[in-house]
Amino acid sequence: MKPIDRASGNGRGRRVTRRRVLTLIGATASLPLIAGRASRGDPPVFEWRGQALGAEAQLLLAHPRQTAARRAAARCVAEIARLERVFSLFDPASELSRLNRDGCLATPSHDLRILLAEAQRFGALSNGAFDVTVQPLWRLYAGHFADPRHDSEGPSETQVAAARALVDYRGIDLAQGRIAFRRPGMAVTLNGIAQGYITDRAADLLRESGFDNVLVQLGETRALGRPAPDRPWRVTLPDPQGGTGATAGLDLVNQAVAASRGAAARFDPTGHHHHLFDPATGASAGRVLAVTVIAGRATAADALATALAVAAPDVAETILNGVGPARALVVLPDGSKRRLGNWV
């Protein structure tokens, strides 16, 4: 008897994947349960695949005991589900949704307070290029282009100015155990950082459980250790122009990687209007085509990738150096590549 396959997708009504840039290469990915070992003596790699944050998700655990790996993966899945309930924009009962609706949250979880503090930190670091309070702009543009009689030039300047007036990460008050917006109408999206945070939490949880060789891919990627003593974790970067060809492999050991590309979620067919807003202008950022960032933690990599996609190229190096060892590959609209940090 054949297993009954259900239509994929868990029906939670999420938007299309914001960006799905990294995929795993090698024969490991094609086997369902035990992802195989490259050579005799390597530990087996347990693989879990599923959906997290509206995207395909994968955990790879190199560990001699498969049952222990299965249990640890199950704990991770529970943690992911727990954090989704905090950060989701689409679950009306999530803490983030309640904050956006009410403008304040009296009893936020630690996770939301930590992540908003991180978001403010990257906001300060990028001088506002990374800003989680761009949600009013998203609402404006999404609403504008959803109207069938929309002006293809985008919303009017006054509308943009009104939305932009609500954008300021410093307007989130995190003091005194509560969260409040300083201006009514403000709203937060954590799409540029929550995936990184959840990736880190899952990786930390696995490390605390004694799994030192793990690859966590939950929208962003974080590698702990290596799958075998002689090999690093290897992931691929698809073509930044969006084509199917030319992918570059990337070796990771105790690193996180995140990528950002405006074209991943565009409002109009030309791609002129897309989800990466420049808070300074209120329009979609257009100076950079795609960014890939490698950093120690996925939260930082995630936020930096968004920041570099928005910020002026001349300040990119400064932003990157603000968080310690990190490097980036920036693809400009003309196809040329800029390597920052010590990207090889």
Binding site: H110, R113, I114, A117, Q120, R121, A124, L174, A175
Partner: peptide, 10 residues
Amino acid sequence: ADDGRAIFAS
């Protein structure tokens, strides 16, 4: 932080 922002560690 230096600018008075709240920072957390868990």
